[in-house]
């Protein structure tokens, strides 16, 4: 199979590393060659965080560049807009509707763009927008919106559910397992706004 590329993007602290590892484990169990690329260090401190997941018969570059992503999964709306250029023509964009103001907006140096969901849809992206934060809080903690979005993704990929369940067990600490499983299920059944 030709290499497929999925970008997972968000704001430092939202748990994109865990999501990318979870997805990587599912794809590994499915028998693909897999590469997952993360950025550590300074970028994690509330900045834009981008991770790349690539899979296929043989994956070379761990990096995804503009026009290459089959899917972008975003934990935050502005980050979804920022990463739109990475999406292939006809690629899928899954985003949380959560908005977190970046420092230039907080200081008043810039505006948070309005009506991003409508604009992203108008730009031709196959858009799925869900309130992952509300669903995560429904599962028990705001921190689980990463796993909610993996549920949203899982519903649109054709891999056995037990692979996802097993990957969640591998990646999540035991004491948060039930909570995350619930978050995943809420994501699975979530409809786009």
């Amino acid at each position: 199979m030709e290499t497929k590329s999925i970008m997972i993007v968000g704001v430092g602290g939202q748990g994109s590393l865990l999501a990318s590892r979870l997805l990587g484990n599912v794809l590994l169990a499915q028998g693909f060659d897999v590469k997952v690329s993360e950025v550590h260090g300074m970028s994690q401190r509330g900045g834009s965080v981008v991770t790349y997941v690539k899979y296929g018969d043989k994956v070379y570059s761990p990096v995804i560049e503009k026009g290459e992503a089959d899917a972008v999964i975003s934990f935050e709306l502005l980050e979804a807009a920022r990463c739109l250029p990475y999406l292939k023509k006809g690629g899928h964009l899954i985003t949380s509707t959560q908005q977190i103001d970046p420092m230039p907006v907080i200081t008043g140096a810039a505006q948070y763009p309005e009506n991003l969901v409508e604009k992203l849809r108008a730009a031709g992206a196959e858009l799925v927008a869900v309130d992952a934060l509300a669903l995560a809080e429904q599962a028990g903690t705001a921190k689980a919106s990463n796993v909610v979005l993996m549920g949203v993704l899982a519903a649109r990929m054709d891999y056995p559910m037990e692979l996802w369940q097993k990957a969640i067990e591998q990646c999540v600490p035991a004491k948060f397992l039930e909570l995350n499983k619930k978050a995943f299920e809420l994501g699975l059944s979530a409809e786009s706004v």
Binding site: G13, M42, K66, E68, P113, A123
Partner: peptide, 19 residues
């Protein structure tokens, strides 16, 4: 060169910040 689309809006940067 790969093709891609982008919004017309100015997307504010999100630099790392103190927590």
């Amino acid at each position: 060169k790969k093709e891609f689309s982008a919004l017309e809006d100015n997307i504010p940067v999100r630099p790392p910040v103190m927590c």
